[in-house]
Protein backbone atom coordinates (compact mmCIF):
# COMPACT_ATOMS: atom_id res chain seq x y z
CA UNK A 1 0.00 0.00 0.00
CA UNK A 2 1.06 3.55 -0.66
CA UNK A 3 -0.02 5.36 2.49
CA UNK A 4 -0.78 3.75 5.81
CA UNK A 5 -1.87 5.49 8.98
CA UNK A 6 -1.40 3.08 11.84
CA UNK A 7 -3.29 3.90 15.06
CA UNK A 8 -2.48 7.56 14.80
CA UNK A 9 -3.34 9.88 17.67
CA UNK A 10 -2.65 13.57 17.82
CA UNK A 11 -3.09 15.99 20.69
CA UNK A 12 -2.30 19.65 20.94
CA UNK A 13 -1.38 21.32 24.17
CA UNK A 14 -3.22 24.48 25.00
CA UNK A 15 -1.41 25.65 28.06
CA UNK A 16 0.11 23.30 30.62
CA UNK A 17 -2.53 20.74 31.46
CA UNK A 18 -5.12 21.56 28.87
CA UNK A 19 -4.84 18.94 26.16
CA UNK A 20 -6.90 18.94 23.02
CA UNK A 21 -7.32 15.51 21.55
CA UNK A 22 -7.65 16.13 17.82
CA UNK A 23 -7.20 12.77 16.19
CA UNK A 24 -8.34 9.54 17.79
CA UNK A 25 -6.95 6.24 16.56
CA UNK A 26 -6.92 7.07 12.89
CA UNK A 27 -6.24 3.94 10.93
CA UNK A 28 -6.60 3.74 7.18
CA UNK A 29 -4.73 2.88 4.03
CA UNK A 30 -4.54 4.33 0.58
CA UNK A 31 -3.64 2.07 -2.32
CA UNK A 32 -1.31 2.94 -5.15
CA UNK A 33 -3.08 5.12 -7.72
CA UNK A 34 -6.17 5.52 -5.58
CA UNK A 35 -8.08 8.79 -5.29
CA UNK A 36 -9.32 9.13 -1.72
CA UNK A 37 -11.24 12.02 -0.19
CA UNK A 38 -11.54 12.96 3.43
CA UNK A 39 -14.65 14.87 4.41
CA UNK A 40 -15.95 16.07 7.72
CA UNK A 41 -17.11 19.16 9.58
CA UNK A 42 -14.70 22.04 10.17
CA UNK A 43 -12.25 21.35 12.93
CA UNK A 44 -12.47 17.57 12.69
CA UNK A 45 -8.76 17.26 12.00
CA UNK A 46 -8.81 16.65 8.24
CA UNK A 47 -6.00 19.09 7.62
CA UNK A 48 -4.04 17.70 10.55
CA UNK A 49 -4.08 14.26 8.92
CA UNK A 50 -2.74 15.79 5.74
CA UNK A 51 0.01 17.59 7.63
CA UNK A 52 1.00 14.34 9.31
CA UNK A 53 1.31 12.58 5.97
CA UNK A 54 3.21 15.54 4.53
CA UNK A 55 5.57 15.34 7.48
CA UNK A 56 4.90 18.94 8.52
CA UNK A 57 3.69 17.70 11.90
CA UNK A 58 4.35 14.55 13.90
CA UNK A 59 1.73 12.25 15.45
CA UNK A 60 1.53 12.01 19.24
CA UNK A 61 1.37 8.26 18.91
CA UNK A 62 1.11 5.77 16.09
CA UNK A 63 2.87 5.76 12.76
CA UNK A 64 2.37 7.30 9.37
CA UNK A 65 3.93 5.22 6.60
CA UNK A 66 4.39 6.12 2.98
CA UNK A 67 5.82 3.39 0.73
CA UNK A 68 6.28 1.30 3.90
CA UNK A 69 8.71 3.83 5.34
CA UNK A 70 7.81 5.84 8.43
CA UNK A 71 7.35 9.55 7.68
CA UNK A 72 10.00 11.51 9.55
CA UNK A 73 9.67 14.95 7.97
CA UNK A 74 8.65 16.75 4.84
CA UNK A 75 9.89 15.38 1.56
CA UNK A 76 9.25 15.96 -2.10
CA UNK A 77 7.73 12.50 -2.56
CA UNK A 78 4.61 13.95 -0.89
CA UNK A 79 3.68 17.35 -2.23
CA UNK A 80 0.82 19.47 -0.93
CA UNK A 81 -1.56 21.71 -2.85
CA UNK A 82 -2.85 24.17 -0.27
CA UNK A 83 -6.22 25.89 -0.18
CA UNK A 84 -4.75 29.27 -1.03
CA UNK A 85 -2.22 27.70 -3.35
CA UNK A 86 0.75 28.77 -1.28
CA UNK A 87 2.43 30.24 -4.33
CA UNK A 88 5.39 32.48 -3.58
CA UNK A 89 4.23 36.00 -4.51
CA UNK A 90 7.74 37.32 -5.25
CA UNK A 91 8.37 34.69 -7.91
CA UNK A 92 6.91 34.45 -11.38
CA UNK A 93 4.70 31.52 -12.33
CA UNK A 94 7.63 29.76 -13.97
CA UNK A 95 9.93 30.35 -10.99
CA UNK A 96 7.26 28.94 -8.71
CA UNK A 97 6.96 25.79 -10.76
CA UNK A 98 10.72 25.28 -11.17
CA UNK A 99 11.42 25.95 -7.47
CA UNK A 100 11.12 22.32 -6.43
CA UNK A 101 12.78 21.04 -9.58
CA UNK A 102 15.96 23.00 -8.91
CA UNK A 103 15.97 21.55 -5.41
CA UNK A 104 15.70 18.10 -6.90
CA UNK A 105 18.88 18.83 -8.82
CA UNK A 106 17.43 19.21 -12.30
CA UNK A 107 19.52 21.23 -14.70
CA UNK A 108 18.23 24.65 -15.71
CA UNK A 109 17.09 23.45 -19.10
CA UNK A 110 15.49 20.27 -17.80
CA UNK A 111 13.65 22.17 -15.08
CA UNK A 112 12.41 24.71 -17.59
CA UNK A 113 11.16 22.05 -19.99
CA UNK A 114 9.49 20.05 -17.28
CA UNK A 115 7.83 23.17 -15.85
CA UNK A 116 6.54 24.19 -19.26
CA UNK A 117 5.11 20.73 -19.73
CA UNK A 118 3.38 20.99 -16.36
CA UNK A 119 2.05 24.46 -17.07
CA UNK A 120 0.71 23.38 -20.43
CA UNK A 121 -1.04 20.49 -18.71
CA UNK A 122 -3.03 23.06 -16.71
CA UNK A 123 -3.36 25.36 -19.74
CA UNK A 124 -1.16 28.15 -18.42
CA UNK A 125 1.66 27.95 -20.94
CA UNK A 126 1.21 31.63 -21.76
CA UNK A 127 1.44 32.94 -18.22
CA UNK A 128 4.97 31.93 -17.32
CA UNK A 129 6.19 35.45 -16.56
CA UNK A 130 3.15 36.60 -14.61
CA UNK A 131 3.29 37.06 -10.86
CA UNK A 132 0.70 35.20 -8.78
CA UNK A 133 -1.28 38.33 -7.91
CA UNK A 134 -2.00 38.87 -11.58
CA UNK A 135 -3.80 35.53 -11.80
CA UNK A 136 -7.38 34.64 -10.90
CA UNK A 137 -8.07 32.25 -8.03
CA UNK A 138 -8.59 29.35 -10.42
CA UNK A 139 -5.36 30.07 -12.26
CA UNK A 140 -3.41 30.20 -9.01
CA UNK A 141 -4.68 26.75 -8.11
CA UNK A 142 -3.69 25.52 -11.55
CA UNK A 143 -0.17 26.80 -10.97
CA UNK A 144 -0.09 25.15 -7.56
CA UNK A 145 -1.21 21.87 -9.12
CA UNK A 146 1.42 22.18 -11.84
CA UNK A 147 4.09 22.96 -9.24
CA UNK A 148 3.19 19.78 -7.39
CA UNK A 149 2.83 17.55 -10.44
CA UNK A 150 6.22 18.40 -11.93
CA UNK A 151 7.80 17.03 -8.77
CA UNK A 152 6.39 13.67 -9.81
CA UNK A 153 5.44 12.87 -6.20
CA UNK A 154 4.38 9.43 -5.00
CA UNK A 155 1.43 10.98 -3.24
CA UNK A 156 -0.35 14.21 -4.07
CA UNK A 157 -1.96 15.79 -1.02
CA UNK A 158 -4.66 18.36 -1.68
CA UNK A 159 -5.96 20.48 1.19
CA UNK A 160 -9.30 21.94 0.14
CA UNK A 161 -7.70 23.19 -3.05
CA UNK A 162 -10.90 24.43 -4.64
CA UNK A 163 -12.72 25.72 -1.56
CA UNK A 164 -12.09 29.39 -2.29
CA UNK A 165 -13.15 29.20 -5.93
CA UNK A 166 -16.47 30.04 -7.49
CA UNK A 167 -18.74 27.21 -8.57
CA UNK A 168 -18.05 27.38 -12.33
CA UNK A 169 -14.28 27.45 -11.93
CA UNK A 170 -14.52 24.60 -9.48
CA UNK A 171 -16.50 22.43 -11.91
CA UNK A 172 -13.95 23.03 -14.65
CA UNK A 173 -11.08 22.17 -12.33
CA UNK A 174 -12.89 18.99 -11.19
CA UNK A 175 -12.94 17.85 -14.80
CA UNK A 176 -9.31 18.73 -15.31
CA UNK A 177 -8.15 17.10 -12.10
CA UNK A 178 -9.90 13.88 -13.10
CA UNK A 179 -8.21 14.09 -16.44
CA UNK A 180 -4.80 14.70 -14.89
CA UNK A 181 -5.34 11.86 -12.47
CA UNK A 182 -6.29 9.50 -15.30
CA UNK A 183 -3.21 10.59 -17.25
CA UNK A 184 -0.66 10.41 -14.44
CA UNK A 185 -2.16 7.71 -12.24
CA UNK A 186 -1.06 9.55 -9.09
CA UNK A 187 -2.15 8.53 -5.63
CA UNK A 188 -4.23 11.44 -4.37
CA UNK A 189 -5.55 12.32 -0.94
CA UNK A 190 -8.09 15.08 -1.33
CA UNK A 191 -9.50 17.03 1.58
CA UNK A 192 -12.75 18.89 1.26
CA UNK A 193 -15.93 19.67 3.08
CA UNK A 194 -17.94 19.61 -0.09
CA UNK A 195 -19.70 16.24 -0.28
CA UNK A 196 -20.47 16.39 -3.97
CA UNK A 197 -16.88 17.35 -4.76
CA UNK A 198 -15.62 14.36 -2.80
CA UNK A 199 -18.02 11.94 -4.45
CA UNK A 200 -17.45 13.25 -7.95
CA UNK A 201 -13.68 12.93 -7.75
CA UNK A 202 -12.90 9.94 -5.56
CA UNK A 203 -12.74 6.20 -5.61
CA UNK A 204 -13.31 6.18 -1.90
CA UNK A 205 -14.61 8.75 0.57
CA UNK A 206 -13.71 8.71 4.24
CA UNK A 207 -16.20 10.50 6.45
CA UNK A 208 -14.78 11.87 9.68
CA UNK A 209 -16.54 12.47 12.94
CA UNK A 210 -15.34 15.25 15.12
CA UNK A 211 -14.03 16.04 18.60
CA UNK A 212 -11.95 13.99 18.61
CA UNK A 213 -11.56 13.37 14.90
CA UNK A 214 -12.00 9.76 13.84
CA UNK A 215 -12.90 7.97 10.65
CA UNK A 216 -16.60 7.22 11.03
CA UNK A 217 -17.59 5.68 7.73
CA UNK A 218 -16.18 4.94 4.36
CA UNK A 219 -17.94 4.87 1.04
CA UNK A 220 -16.74 3.26 -2.14
CA UNK A 221 -17.87 5.35 -5.07
CA UNK A 222 -18.63 2.79 -7.76
CA UNK A 223 -19.73 5.17 -10.46
CA UNK A 224 -18.42 5.17 -14.01
CA UNK A 225 -15.74 7.63 -15.04
CA UNK A 226 -15.71 10.32 -16.24
CA UNK A 227 -18.03 11.17 -13.43
CA UNK A 228 -21.33 12.94 -13.80
CA UNK A 229 -22.54 14.54 -10.54
CA UNK A 230 -26.13 13.61 -11.43
CA UNK A 231 -25.20 9.92 -11.71
CA UNK A 232 -27.71 7.96 -9.60
CA UNK A 233 -24.93 6.25 -7.63
CA UNK A 234 -23.49 9.61 -6.62
CA UNK A 235 -26.86 11.15 -5.81
CA UNK A 236 -27.74 8.20 -3.64
CA UNK A 237 -24.42 8.27 -1.79
CA UNK A 238 -24.76 12.00 -1.34
CA UNK A 239 -27.96 11.43 0.64
CA UNK A 240 -26.31 8.81 2.83
CA UNK A 241 -23.27 10.94 3.53
CA UNK A 242 -25.40 13.99 4.25
CA UNK A 243 -27.45 12.09 6.80
CA UNK A 244 -24.29 10.94 8.59
CA UNK A 245 -22.74 14.33 8.45
CA UNK A 246 -25.84 15.95 9.87
CA UNK A 247 -25.33 14.06 13.09
CA UNK A 248 -21.78 15.34 13.34
CA UNK A 249 -22.90 18.84 12.56
CA UNK A 250 -25.45 18.70 15.34
CA UNK A 251 -22.75 17.60 17.73
CA UNK A 252 -20.58 20.56 16.74
CA UNK A 253 -23.40 23.06 16.95
CA UNK A 254 -24.57 21.72 20.30
CA UNK A 255 -21.08 22.13 21.64
CA UNK A 256 -20.81 25.65 20.33
CA UNK A 257 -24.22 26.96 21.25
CA UNK A 258 -24.92 24.82 24.28
CA UNK A 259 -28.06 22.79 24.89
CA UNK A 260 -30.41 25.48 23.70
CA UNK A 261 -29.48 24.57 20.15
CA UNK A 262 -31.91 22.13 18.66
CA UNK A 263 -31.32 20.98 15.12
CA UNK A 264 -34.59 20.25 13.39
CA UNK A 265 -34.78 16.95 11.61
CA UNK A 266 -33.26 17.31 8.12
CA UNK A 267 -32.69 20.98 8.70
CA UNK A 268 -29.47 21.08 6.77
CA UNK A 269 -30.79 19.01 3.93
CA UNK A 270 -33.66 21.39 3.21
CA UNK A 271 -31.21 24.03 2.13
CA UNK A 272 -30.10 24.84 -1.38
CA UNK A 273 -29.18 21.50 -2.87
CA UNK A 274 -26.92 22.90 -5.53
CA UNK A 275 -24.04 23.41 -3.16
CA UNK A 276 -24.58 20.62 -0.73
CA UNK A 277 -22.21 20.79 2.10
CA UNK A 278 -19.94 23.37 0.59
CA UNK A 279 -20.65 25.90 3.31
CA UNK A 280 -20.47 23.72 6.36
Amino acid sequence: MKVHLDQVNKSFFKGKDDKLHVLDNIDFEIQEGEFVSLIGPSGCGKSTILKLIAGLDAPSSGEVKVNDAVVKGPGNDRVVVFQEGGLFPWMTVLENVTYGLHLKGSSKQAAHDKAMEGLRMVHLGNFTDAHPHELSGGMKQRVAIARSLVMDPDVLLMDEPFAALDEQTRLVLHKELQHIWAQTGKTILFITHNIREALTLSDRVLLMSTRPGAVKQQYEVQAARPRDPSDSVIVDLEKQVMAELEEEMEKVLKEEFGDDYNLEKSHVRDGDRSDMGSHI
Binding site: G55, L56, P74, G75, V79, G86, L87, G100, M151, L157
Partner: peptide
Amino acid sequence: IYIDAAKTLGSS
Protein backbone atom coordinates in the same frame (compact mmCIF):
# COMPACT_ATOMS: atom_id res chain seq x y z
CA ILE B 1 1.93 28.35 4.23
CA TYR B 2 5.01 29.53 2.30
CA ILE B 3 7.32 27.67 4.63
CA ASP B 4 5.17 24.54 4.54
CA ALA B 5 4.92 24.67 0.76
CA ALA B 6 8.68 25.11 0.38
CA LYS B 7 9.39 22.27 2.81
CA THR B 8 7.18 19.84 0.96
CA LEU B 9 8.97 20.83 -2.24
CA GLY B 10 12.21 19.79 -0.59
CA SER B 11 13.64 23.02 0.82
CA SER B 12 15.23 23.27 4.25
